[in-house]
Design a protein around this nucleic acid. Structure first.
Lengths: 335, 335
DNA sequence: TTGTACGCGTTATCAG
DNA sequence: CTGATAACGCGTACAA
């Protein structure tokens, strides 16, 4: 159905065997120049296009890698995809993406649907119950986990050191002489958010400050809502660490509306360094996790795993750890 | 290679024929309950996962649609993908995305690579030389063009009325009593950008104003650069229409740095209504093209084409036209 | 209800 | 260099 015209048609039209046609089209050198021309001409005339599935079946090679993310849009995931895309086209690979929408079962389902259609899997599943995953996921397919928590079933992975990033964020705020530092947390079931929360708490403990944690879900709306809570308090915090940039953004929006001055009244810092942080006013300080690089390097790692005899490369299951870098912008620079 | 264990293995393990195994797994009703259980148990034990390519080949059905965009990341495309994703999961479809990186040949190449791996194609190719495409693209695969210019080879498509959108933008600025209205254009080879430029020029002509067009490429950097040019002039414009939101964003950034007041000194309006426009300061006026909806509706349209006997559905090649809606925010509201 | 056998479109092996 | 032909893994008439 796909292409209608098959290799068989081309071969017939060119008056050669289907085998020769295949060789000619794939540029093998064991064909007469004359045959090649005849085949190529016939192919062009008939608008022949190779059938991907058939080729994949015969070669057990798809030149495609599957990408499973919680969502496939938005500033954050978009940057990851960009990184993957850049590396993929460098390796001549295509990408089959799927969103798990925050659900482990969805992620597994997506992975199953990709079996036989991809050469490897890139998975990001920062869910608390992600252990289920490791058992059900690898259909002896090369696999790289992205940005999950550390030793997730010791699969090869690229993880961000969320804890020390958060710690650094808090220290930075303290250096700006913040004393009452609040935190807008990520989803409770999110492992990365949990680590950031831990970093925050420990950062306060270092200086004997008392914490205030507001719930959040990584959306700008959550940041905005959190700020409303703060504004209703008797005493506002003078420092705010949001578990991600989107929430920091929503927070600045709310504060600006309320006429609170940033960073003088309250210093703000986010996490991830998504592109829009630079356009906020004031531009938002953050921790650059190298979102783009996570995508790029993950694919490169996967690419290697695929090249070397596929399957169980868990031997050198090197978990590359990415240490976030503090990026200070106007939202937290006081003086 | 993909899944190692095949249906054959499962059948053997369950002590039934491969046919029965297939039936049991696919939930057909013509199998004894006992056989079904045996098969399912064996499948579970062996961690059997159906081989996508094989299945696709046998059924000529992939439950996957191919998406070809100029790029697969960034605010704009991300929103399109979101629309597609939402509609796709509603239809139980997966998506195979590919970026053409502004090149027609790349787009064709991507499309070819998708043949036999997808049930239909969603293509966005706003290139000036996109005519090549129509001839080389449809391997009698259902296809929907997204947001290209109008009658692109009369394929079924979803197009935005860029011309009237631009016209409306200019009229709006005029109503804000702008007299010197400049335009930051999109890439010259971009058909949509060309239409927006035409709308701008006609909008000025209506009021006998003289145009000033600055070159751009849809990036924020271009918007920023354009502003530098304006600032160096003797007389600044008092109105600015950017061909897309990203450039408008870059422009506001540059103007803010220079201490120019928006919208008092200069009113600004963009195009597309990507999410970040709301976070800019001031929030940016724009024309809502319904980016999300373009994606969603395109997939729905494609879905229909696929359902009804695939192939030449060009009969009712209804090109749905989306009329952009003016969204006035602080960046252009004067009084 | 079950099993056999063929076809899907390509690649790859092995004689000619 | 070329041409049959056997895989690849699965669905499905067809026959039993």
């Amino acid at each position: 159905m796909a292409a209608g015209v098959t290799l068989n048609d081309v071969a017939k039209a060119a008056g050669v065997s289907i085998a020769s046609a295949s060789r000619a089209i794939n540029g093998l050198d064991n064909v007469t120049e004359e045959v090649r021309e005849r085949v190529l001409e016939a192919a062009g005339k008939l608008k022949y296009v190779p059938h991907g599935a058939a080729r994949a079946l015969a070669m057990s090679r798809t030149n495609t890698i599957g990408v499973i993310l919680p969502d496939i849009y938005g500033e954050f995931f978009s940057e990851i995809i960009r990184g993957i895309d850049v590396a993929a086209r460098a390796s001549g690979l295509h990408i089959l993406v799927s969103g798990s929408h925050g659900d482990v079962k969805e992620a597994v389902k997506a992975a199953r649907a990709m079996a036989g259609r991809v050469d490897g899997l890139l998975v990001m599943a920062p869910y608390a119950d992600a252990d289920d995953l490791s058992g059900k996921l690898p259909f002896n397919l090369p696999l790289v986990m992205m940005g999950g928590v550390g030793g997730q079933a010791d699969l090869p992975s690229l993880v961000v050191d969320n804890y020390s990033g958060a710690l650094e964020a808090v220290r930075h705020l303290r250096e700006q002489s913040c004393r009452r530092i609040a935190h807008i947390a990520g989803p409770e079931s999110n492992l990365e958010a949990q680590d950031r929360l831990r970093g925050y708490l420990d950062g306060l403990k270092e200086a004997d400050l008392s914490p205030q944690v507001l719930p959040g879900d990584f959306t700008d709306a959550a940041g905005y809502a959190a700020v409303q809570t703060l504004l209703a308090q008797e005493q506002m915090p003078d420092g705010l660490f949001a578990a991600n940039d989107m929430m920091a953004l929503g927070a600045t929006l709310g504060l600006r509306e309320a006429g609170v001055s940033i960073p003088d009244d309250i210093a703000i810092i986010g996490f991830d360094d998504i592109p829009v942080t630079r356009y906020a006013s004031p531009p938002i300080s953050t921790l650059r996790a190298g979102v783009f690089d996570i995508g790029r390097r993950s694919l490169e790692l996967l690419s290697v795993l695929i090249e070397r005899g596929s399957a169980e490369a868990s031997t050198s299951a090197a978990s590359l750890i990415v240490r976030p870098e503090l990026v200070v912008r106007a939202s937290s620079r006081r003086r």
